[in-house]
Design a protein around this nucleic acid. Sequence first.
DNA 1: TCCCCTCGAGTTCA
DNA 2: CTCGAGGGGA
Length: 697
Amino acid sequence: MTLDVDALTEAEAAADLERLAREIAEHDERYHREDAPTISDAAYDALKRRNAELEARFPQLVRPDSPSLRVGAAPAAKFSPVEHGVPMLSLDNAFSDGEVADFVGRVRRFLRLDGEPIAFTAEPKIDGLSASLRYERGRLVQGATRGDGRTGEDVTENLRTLPDIPDRLSGEGWPEVIEVRGEVYIRHADFAAMNAAEAEAGRRTYANPRNAAAGSLRQLDAAVTAQRPLRFFAYAWGLTSAPVAETQWEALARLRDWGFPVSEEAERVLDAEGLLEVYARAQARRPHLGYDIDGVVYKVDRLDWQARLGFVSRSPRWAVAHKFPAEQARTVLEGIDIQVGRTGALTPVARLRPVTVGGVTVVNATLHNADEIARKDLRVGDTVLIQRAGDVIPQILQALPEDRPPEAPPYVFPDVCPCPLRTPVVRETTAAGVETVVRRCSGELACPFQRVEHLKHFVSRRAFDIEGLGEKQLQAFYDDGLVREPADIFRLARDEARLQALREREGYGETSIRNLVAGIEARRTISLERFIFALGVRHVGETTARTLAQAYGSWPRLAEALEAIIAGDAGARADMDALDKIGDPTIDALAAYFGEAHNREAVRRLVDAVSIEDAERPKTDTAVAGKTVVFTGALERLTRDEAKAQAAALGAKVGSSVSRKTDIVVAGPGAGSKLKTAQELGVQVLTEDEWLALATG
DNA sequence: TCCCCTCGAGTTCA
DNA sequence: CTCGAGGGGA
């Protein structure tokens, strides 16, 4: 809660200054030492600003440890963004021999290789941070962090200070342009010495070598980075103007020739059988390496096979990281609470006796659902084994039955919602007649817990993104009756009675009210897809919302279609069903939502309060506009998603099955029944090249 | 009909 | 990050 500066007593101001000094110091610390800022720059700036305002109003209260008196602590300057020529992907993880076998099996099946041996490289997975180095004509021109995989930060000058990174490539045969990728890390001995020196100098030490490496690389002053014992291993490449090699193994040798350190621990195995031996060896060598590794990365050796295998969403199908087991800890399961989600889903959460795992204190862990609790037979009072999955999310692995209190009863999932209405808990049945795993509160939006979650979703970043209206304020406004439905948020900004109620609230001065109103007004105009997503209809996430927005173009048209569907218009339903990734459950959810009188009214009030921008209408002036296209068989020049996106961009509808309504079938090699159907129905059939010619017109 | 892949929804810590 | 389930290819 932030009180208006002018409204504060001296004692309150002193307390607030104390809090700000502490919080800002914490954030500075996190930013500089752990390299993991936990608040946005804007939020950080707001803290600093408030500190400055308070100090201006109460100069006698300026603390000796005031953030305003420290220099160079703010994460003010930034590194400029760098778009990677080829995204830096993450790897799929395997945690067991079985998962490694699954990986090999997938590769084998995908390549249609029976029995034939597949060679793999196995390289230790260094626990540092990855970096991409762009060389043009053999000279280092840019170095970047991984960032989100697509865009990283420009840390060229810092990377130049690493002795392991050549400024000019040596040897020969390097492509004119190449992004060399690898891991920046710090050796144990160097880390210890560096921390000792930091401690000597009275500065805080880093928690582990990885944080130290990340913090050192992201120094604004490259001279500081130069002092840090950073090292580099190369293991991959991104964009390249010429093929690097024919196999991963050969590529590693080339990288070595060009002057990069390449792990001496990397091995090539001629068949999948050898992988687990490498893993066992790596585990045995781990304590003696002198730097942290967290697993072994297996890659299909042949690059032409890698190309055939391609990618699944964000990770390559041709590689996997076989991780070492995560650090585990035992603690006591002190209770199980039930949380209510915006769709009414009831999620059990474990309350744990605080315990340190992998450097952080864990007190909560999700239990996902009732089946999960039953499967693990978790009981309150049990001693449980926990770990942090992927080193982040805490996870309960199992209960240790020998430590179970004799009287602990099996956990019984509640049959009423924890909300004040005590609505009965229900389980739905899928189309196939199977009970779903999730238990839900049957109260819908009558349930106050669901309503608040619904409102939180509405203002969230991907929906209306209203600044200054966080979860806490929303909860408070809800409790006071100021905001009960989305439209109320927009009334808040214009309705005098509500503004007056705000002014009377503790903690709301004119400044904060002005900011809140500005935040709301800034979002009064919204894109159709965000609007649809914000409604929070079940099954309608960001992607589905976008599909609907593009298909219907405007809110009135979508509303009209929904009215028709609710009225039983089979044609309108079929049209929606034909959209990509939209099927009966989604349509039923939409129909149920808009068929309900309260929702309908609430949406009408909201529509009146905001202005919804029409979506980009599908093109009508292209060769394929309005036509329904079906892709079948393997595509060689485009991925399926690219092809679909291209068709959609040109105003065509993408179908999944061939019928009389289909206008064009694009058939690649291996096309089967759809091609046959198309021929039988006399639908136009194109090759991929013919399609491209038509599409690019 | 059977998988495989995406999407949605819920989640942790500092 | 993880699980469950919808959608759609084979």
